[in-house]
């Protein structure tokens, strides 16, 4: 059923639905995220978490200075993160700008990495300040180039001025465009949404409009994927699952640089939505520097001594 039978695509039905949402207890969310962050994950559980986190990484390069060579190097790393150890799993996806999608797809296929999807950031990333026609063309370009995951940004200006239906319609349009060809991840840019209530509202708008994933941030704004924000989004996903029986994924992106940070996120996932979400198909971590730290922790576990950053690649 369209929009899960919860709204019918009109503004009045969306507003009615959003009014039913409970508010977020800010202190409670922060305290719970902080409490879960104290969980100590060691030895074999840690090794398992490291490999899981590697398989969830959306290995990302979103710089003005990206070159085809850099994208290809990143593809090599995505397929085989540690060139000295073939037991390391491939990452969840490669995440690049639109014009690099074809280069990444072609190179991945040529090195035996056809199982690694290419995600493209879309709809005038990162600001989202462009006409709908441009956003649609932007997404279409990425799909044509072979992207199987689209990371779109919401119109924060519209959201913050209360035009929820505008945000909803944009997501719904891009959803239709993606069809069955691509997964849709909707970037809320929580660092610009100011309150946890807004994060929860935006999460529901995105999920109702057809997002497969809701994603915290572009990585261009700080703060990004802080544990309380991810917790609030996971709770929205949990509530949405209870309501519709549909599983929506979450992608935490931005500011996750160390293995410790990544494992904290996994604990949040497990404790909020359950172990079913501990899979790259339902939880992703958008990062670039994180992968090296995960690999170094893996080396420490394997060799028994601390490695040096000189032994992992510089991206």
């Amino acid at each position: 059923m369209e929009f899960y039978g919860l709204v019918d695509g009109t503004e009045i039905s969306l507003r009615k639905f959003l009014q039913t949402l409970s508010g977020v207890d800010q202190i409670g969310a922060e305290a719970r995220a902080a409490m879960l962050a104290t969980r100590s994950i060691k030895t074999s559980a840690k090794n398992w978490a490291i490999d899981l986190a590697i398989s969830m990484v959306d290995l990302t390069t979103l710089e003005g200075a990206d070159t085809p060579g850099k994208v290809r190097a990143l593809c090599n790393k995505a397929v085989r993160p540690d060139s000295t150890d073939s037991s390391v799993p491939s990452v969840g996806a490669i995440c690049v700008y639109n014009d690099m999608v074809a280069i990444a797809r072609k190179h991945l296929d040529s090195i035996g990495g056809s199982h690694v999807p290419v995600a493209a950031v879309s709809t005038a990333f990162p600001s989202g300040r462009a006409s709908m026609a441009v956003k649609i063309q932007d997404t279409q370009d990425a799909l044509d180039a072979g992207a199987t995951e689209i990371d779109m940004v919401i119109d924060r200006g519209a959201f913050l001025s209360g035009q929820f239906q505008v945000v909803f319609d944009e997501i719904a349009k891009i959803r239709t465009l993606c069809g069955t060809k691509a997964h849709l991840k909707v970037i809320l840019e929580t660092g610009e949404l100011v309150t946890y209530d807004n994060v929860r509202t935006a999460s529901f708008i995105a999920m109702l409009a057809g997002a497969d994933f809701i994603k915290t941030s572009t990585g261009k704004v700080s703060p990004a994927a802080t544990p309380p924000v991810v917790l609030v989004m996971l709770e929205a996903v949990r509530d949405f699952h209870q309501l519709t029986n549909h599983k929506i994924g979450v992608k935490a992106a931005g500011g996750i640089r160390t293995t410790k940070d990544a494992i904290k996120q996994l604990v949040l996932v497990n404790e909020t939505v359950g172990s079913q979400w501990l899979s790259p198909s339902l939880f992703r971590i958008g990062a670039s520097a994180l992968l090296n730290d995960l690999l170094m922790q893996r080396m420490k576990a394997r060799d028994g001594f601390y490695p040096s950053p000189s032994y992992v690649s510089i991206d």
């Binding site: 001594f305 601390y306 490695p307 040096s308 000189s310 032994y311």
Partner: peptide, 8 residues
């Protein structure tokens, strides 16, 4: 021993 084995 940790000083000695640390690769960095």
């Amino acid at each position: 021993p940790w000083f000695a084995s640390h690769m960095d």
